[in-house]
């Protein structure tokens, strides 16, 4: 006599793998980790060297955000090898030949978004950590988590695959911008960000 499966069991036999694939396997497969070109400790620079965020990531005189400092800024302190393998690699690979470090920017928005740092810093007086989290205290540079489909950073979507926000800085999607703007009473138009 053959064994016949009850209908709920057959249904569950399809449901369970699909749920597992969707919740467990898919998030792992979706992102690939790309190492940064150099090890970097924000903590060391902030505490040991006494540098603040705007010491390296400042607004320029023209109001534009300078972003990641150019290699000349690094050369100000790291002109010669010594101290750590990371510094040696920096000097040898980038400072001496005058080549920019190809950092991978976890917080970069897609090209269809225009995000100006200047009004958020100068007018809204937001702290860097409001959007970037405790990056300034990290002991090592996180690998860049690249979405294999969109090519964007995982930080744009946020760490949770269902976008559950444990912290204010989890996620930099449009919904996050809108939520913050709504809270601040600064709702604006599409063309403000999508030029």
């Amino acid at each position: 006599m053959n064994l016949k499966l009850p209908a709920p069991v057959s249904f569950a036999a399809g449901l369970a793998p699909a749920l597992a694939a969707g919740w467990l396997l898919f998030p792992r497969l979706l992102y690939e980790e790309v190492p940064q070109p150099l090890p970097f400790s924000h903590e060391a620079h902030a505490e040991a060297a006494g540098t603040t965020c705007d010491g390296c990531h400042a607004l320029g005189p023209d109001g534009r955000f300078a972003g990641v400092p150019r290699v000349e800024a690094c050369a100000g302190c790291h002109a010669e090898k010594g101290g750590s393998p990371g510094v040696d690699a920096l000097v040898e690979g980038y400072v001496t030949p005058g080549r920019e470090v190809p950092w991978l920017f976890a917080a970069r928005q897609p090209d269809n978004v225009f995000f100006p740092h200047a009004p958020h810093l100068a007018l809204a007086k937001l702290e860097c950590a409001r959007c970037h989290g405790p990056q300034g205290k990290s002991a090592e540079a996180r690998p860049f988590a690249r979405n294999r489909i969109s090519g964007e950073s995982r930080d744009v979507w946020g760490p949770s695959i269902v976008r559950r926000k444990a912290n204010a800085w989890d996620g930099m999607k449009m919904a996050d911008c809108i939520r913050c703007h709504r809270e601040a009473g600064r709702e604006s138009a599409c063309l403000d960000c999508h030029k």
């Binding site: 209908a7 057959s10 036999a13 399809g14 699909a18 749920l19 694939a21």
Partner: peptide, 17 residues
């Protein structure tokens, strides 16, 4: 059974991200 499993898989996919 196969149709039920496929329906379950589809349901599971929809209920996943």
């Amino acid at each position: 059974d196969l149709l039920l499993a496929a329906t379950g898989a589809a349901t599971g996919a929809v209920l996943s991200p």
